[in-house]
Design a protein around this nucleic acid. Structure first.
Lengths: 325, 325
DNA sequence: CCGTTTCCTGCAATCGTTTGTTGTGGAAAA
DNA sequence: TTTTCCACAACAAACGATTGCAGGAAACGG
């Protein structure tokens, strides 16, 4: 079936398309009477504007691209919820791409975004991404970009992160405050930036309490049982876990080794959802994906809306300690 | 900066825009020599086509809309991963909407989809949605729709679900096979369709084994501790949990009541991700979000691509029992 | 040498919407 | 009565890419 257009409406009412257009956009130059007639026809025939035509003419698109390296159950969903809230509010439409942690794919996606005339890009870089050369094209096309969560440090684009070292430090300090004497730190793959940062914060907390402790880096989470099998857990009385994913897996692994979790002082860095759902409760530095998503979207929209240039910001999201359920 | 267009390229090379366009689309009517020259300029100036212009002219869009009622960590992410795989493969672009479980919002979104001239819609209906009247508009606009996961039973659109009753039945049977004599079924809010279906399957399994058992419906998951506080768990030796969300919360709640989970024969319906991550292992009927997403996307694309009409299908996704880690 | 075919490129229209400019009739002001 | 002004609506151009058709030049056959 052929869609009804503004011209069809114009013809029916013996009006000019321009008048119909203005009627629909509440332009003052159109008589209230004619507007009524237009609206009536719109309703009767279920007219909806063709956004391709509109945005093509207007040279914008109302589209915001979100580029994610992967879909994981621990953080992505709340980030998306946060972004969506903001975008829906401001009447933007979200298109989602998935780089599959490939730098090459990320480049392709960015090209595609330009083709789509998106008005802004929200980017969580892939693990492979080491530089931001590929964002140059977006800059040239004057498309604002906000990097968040995993970022490449730079001074050309707004970034939104947490102070990983400081947060890990605070979480570890909480374990120490609870009286643990020997703490095990559990981290993800050591090559990714946040592992390094959080590990650093962990060790800083230990040394400022004049304590020792050790860290393990889980390269492949499915092998966690093996990886911790040669650790004498009895020597530890505290555990720090750098993420939700590690937390749930670590708890599972300990459980499989029939270790009583009550014996441990624990802390993690978490989105806050999982600790609400599982037992025992794990105190955590609340690193809310929802908030990060919202903030990223808000910053981006601000840049999109502004006419002039806006100062680049390096935002550190505040985190807080959640010490009880 | 102004974007470079086909006409700019044409001017530079003293060609006609039409020739440039044909060169770029590998049309045979253009000399290999000229094509080379065009490609060189394209590369030099980083030309990217304006998809709004193209799709506006071509009357399609390469867009597929995904409408979700909510973002939850338990199923959404794997559904999206599955969809994305297929769409990326077939060169479609995904736009995502979030109905926030509101029927009204769902209607708005569908309108918006038509406005965007999307080529297909993947829909998980909101909890409020009781009918499919609002999909009539899509049908009139000849936009294919695939309903999946949560659906409204109907014979006008392709649907992809699991046989909830049968799956719940099988899971329960597994608990019975393991020797449990008195089984507790844990279900979500009784007003949503899948709760009813799964509860029915659960009870069917019980009665065909000439057993009794009881169910509880968790209206508000944050109150799970209260809800199970008046249950004498000692009388049960088996638990069936209808979803990942209930599973993780139930395990947590039992743990808080210091109940030894080893004493229970358990089974659930699960996406499979969580059981890999937690301990104890919970046998489950594997209801893979990834697979559902893929299948939904594939079915939709097939309808989109086909010229004639395609038979409506009511697909039940196969599930399998995962009885060990 | 002319007619026909082949190969390549140009011309012009088109998609649906928006918007700057122009036109018109009637009322108010002079 | 003439001039001015205003409210309203029509006209036309534009956005960038695609495509049917026309046309020119070279190649080829007779």
């Amino acid at each position: 079936m052929k869609r009804i257009t503004i011209q069809d409406i114009a013809k029916m009412l013996s009006l000019n398309p321009s008048t119909v257009s203005r009627a629909l956009s509440n332009h003052k130059d159109v008589n209230e009477e004619t507007r009524k007639r237009v609206l009536a026809v719109v309703k009767e025939f279920n007219y909806v504007p063709n956004l391709h035509a509109r945005y093509f003419r207007m040279k914008n698109s109302g589209l915001i691209a979100l580029i994610l390296p992967e879909f994981n159950m621990f953080f992505t969903h709340s980030i998306m919820a946060g972004i969506n809230q903001v975008l829906t509010d401001k009447n933007f439409t979200l298109i989602v791409f998935y780089s599959n942690n490939s730098y090459q794919r990320e480049i392709e996606i960015i090209r595609h975004c330009i083709s789509w005339v998106v008005e802004g890009v929200l980017l969580v870089v892939s693990d492979e991404t080491q530089d931001i050369d590929h964002l140059e094209e977006l800059k040239m096309a004057e498309i604002p970009v906000v990097l968040f969560d995993k970022v490449v440090p730079n001074d050309k684009f707004t970034t939104i992160t947490i102070d990983d070292a400081q947060v890990a430090n605070a979480a570890t300090a909480h374990i120490i405050d609870n009286g643990a004497k020997n703490i095990l730190g559990v981290f993800a793959h050591p090559s990714i930036d946040i592992s390094k940062q959080r590990s650093e914060g962990f060790h800083r907390a230990l040394s400022s309490a004049h304590m020792q402790g050790s860290s393990i880096f889980i390269n492949d989470i499915s092998k966690i049982d093996q990886l911790i099998s040669n650790i004498d857990l009895a020597t530890y009385d505290g555990i720090f876990m750098m993420s939700d994913e590690l937390m749930i897996n670590m708890l599972g692994a300990l459980h499989r080794r029939c270790i009583n979790l009550i014996d441990f002082k624990m802390a993690a860095i978490s989105d806050g959802v999982l600790p609400k759902n599982i037992s025992p409760f794990v105190p955590h530095m609340l690193h809310s994906g929802l908030k990060v998503g919202q903030l990223a979207a808000e910053e981006l929209i601000e840049e999109v809306m502004s006419t002039g240039t806006i100062p680049i910001k390096q935002i550190k999201v505040q985190t807080s300690l959640i010490s009880e359920p």
